[in-house]
Each structure stands twice: as C-alpha cells, then as structure tokens.
C-alpha cells in the first residue's frame, strides 16, 4: 500500500512539474512576442572598430575550439551528457533573447543565462553553446552582430561562464548551500557580462579619450537595468539548479556539481 501511495505522490510531482514547465513555456513565448522593440547587451554590428573586433575574435576562438574538444570528450564518457547539453543550449538561446522590462529603469534587457550551463557542464562547453546561440541571434534576430560576435562571446560566454562557475565553486568550498551558491553565481555572472561589455565598448570607441572615465560612465549607465536583472538571473539559476537536483541529483553527482552524500 505504501508503495502505491508513493507512486501516486510521484505522479502528482510529475504532473505539477509538467504543468509548471508548460506554463513557463507559455509565459516565455507570450513575453517574447509581446515585447518587440527590446534588445540588450549584445554589441551591434559596426559599433566596434575592425581592429578591436578582430582582437576579441582572436580571444574567443581558442575558447570555442576548446569547448568543442571538451564536448566530444565528455559525450563519449556519458550518454546523458548530450541531452543535458541540448537542454542548456536551448536555455541559453531563449534566456539571452528574452527582453525583460525593468520598471525601475524604464528599459529592457536580458539575462545572460550562462551561469546555469557553466555550473552543470563546465565553462568550456558553455562558451561553445553561447557562441552558437550568439551566431544564430546575429544572423536571424538582428541581435548582436557578425563582426562583434567575438566581443559578445568574450563577455557573455567566457566572462559570464567563468565568473559564474568561479563564484559557485568558491561558495561550495565554504559549504554554502546549493541554491544560495547558484543564486550568487547567476547574479555575479550577469554583472560580469555587463562589466565586460563596458570594457569592450569603452576600449573600442574611446579614440583619444582616457579609458577609465568612459568605462565608468558606461558601467554606471548599465546599473539601473542590470542591478535588478542580476537578481532575477540569480533566482533563475538557483531555481534551475535546484530543480535538476530534485529530478536528477545523480547527474549533478556525475558531473561533480555536488558530492555523492549530498544526493541521498
């Protein structure tokens, strides 16, 4: 009898998860279709001089190449790695395309979404996923640019992923809870993305002007939008990691996110 009730309970859980996923999908779709004139951090085509665009390309390419190598290695080891990569790719693509209105600032922006895959898959594969998402967005969504792809990969892919995973691992070392660590990882990752965008923009457009005052000006201009959005991204990251912990704690153990004893 107990086992029957237990299975019934697991059915309830499954149903609730399905409902919430379905409705979240509905909300995301409606949101994407409702807000039209809203893009965000991606640096648009032609904003950076070619020399700077080339430099950021040169920085991004080795990371993307290493990400491909790592993906091939890890896919051979574990079969469940590929669906997880697919899930993360879809999440990064949708999140980094989703304009969120920030009422306090009267502007729109989007989270990066790179902290979630960085925690679960590692930063190298995250850079690759981000690169692909950014390429599709630059080609078909007038979001970002082809010449500025390298700069966008560096800010969103490399800095977003490494800052997120760095904070997460550091906090876990000090025995901070999974959800709290994921929250701070998401938040810091978001802020790191926009800080890097400020560096890229200030360096690219400054001309003869000194770097630091312009960088500070741009960074401060991002603050009213990105400060609350970073908190939203933190909550999203914590929610996703916790959900995966509840449904597939074994995967988190397998990929070294948590220790085996935590999954019991």
């Amino acid at each position: 009898m107990k086992s029957e009730v237990r299975s019934q309970k697991s059915e309830v859980k499954k149903l609730v998860t399905r409902y919430s996923l379905l409705i979240t999908l509905m909300l995301v779709t409606c949101h994407l279709s409702l807000v039209t004139d809203a893009f965000a951090m991606h640096i648009s085509e032609g904003i950076l001089p070619l020399s700077w665009a080339a430099l950021w390309f040169a920085v991004a390419i080795p990371f993307v190449w290493y990400g491909m190598k790592r993906l091939r290695e890890l896919s051979k080891i574990d079969l469940s790695y590929k669906p997880l990569v697919g899930l993360m790719a879809a999440i990064v693509f949708v999140i980094s395309l989703m304009p969120i209105p920030v009422p306090t600032a009267g502007t729109c922006s989007h989270p990066g979404g790179t902290a979630i895959p960085a925690i679960l898959l590692g930063p190298a594969v995250t850079v690759l996923i981000t690169g692909v998402a950014l390429l599709i967005q630059a080609l078909f969504f007038a979001h970002g640019g082809l010449t500025t792809w390298g700069a966008d990969v560096v800010s969103m892919g490399i800095m977003g992923a490494f800052a997120g995973v760095g904070i997460f691992r550091l906090m876990r070392k000090f025995n901070v809870g999974l959800a709290v660590s994921a929250f701070f990882a998401g938040m810091i990752s978001d802020w790191a993305i926009y800080a890097t965008t400020s560096v890229e923009l200030a360096a690219g457009i400054r001309g003869d002007e000194p770097f630091w005052p312009l960088f500070t000006k741009i960074l401060i201009a991002f603050v009213p939008t990105q400060l609350p959005l970073g908190i939203v991204e933190g909550a999203m990251t914590a929610g996703m990691v916790k959900l995966l912990f509840k449904r597939r704690a074994d995967l988190l153990v397998k990929f070294g996110v948590i220790k085996a004893e935590e999954a019991i």
């Binding site: 648009s44 457009i205 741009i218 201009a221 991002f222 939008t225």
Partner: peptide
C-alpha cells in the same frame, strides 16, 4: 522600454562617432 543596447551601447557609441 528601449533595450540597453539602444539606451547605453548605441548612445555612447554615437557620441564617439560610431
């Protein structure tokens, strides 16, 4: 409700001739 690319990135770029 413009995106920050418009209100920040493009605005500063335009001010600096790009």
């Amino acid at each position: 409700w413009s995106g920050v690319d418009e209100s920040v990135v493009e605005k500063y770029a335009k001010d600096h001739g790009r």
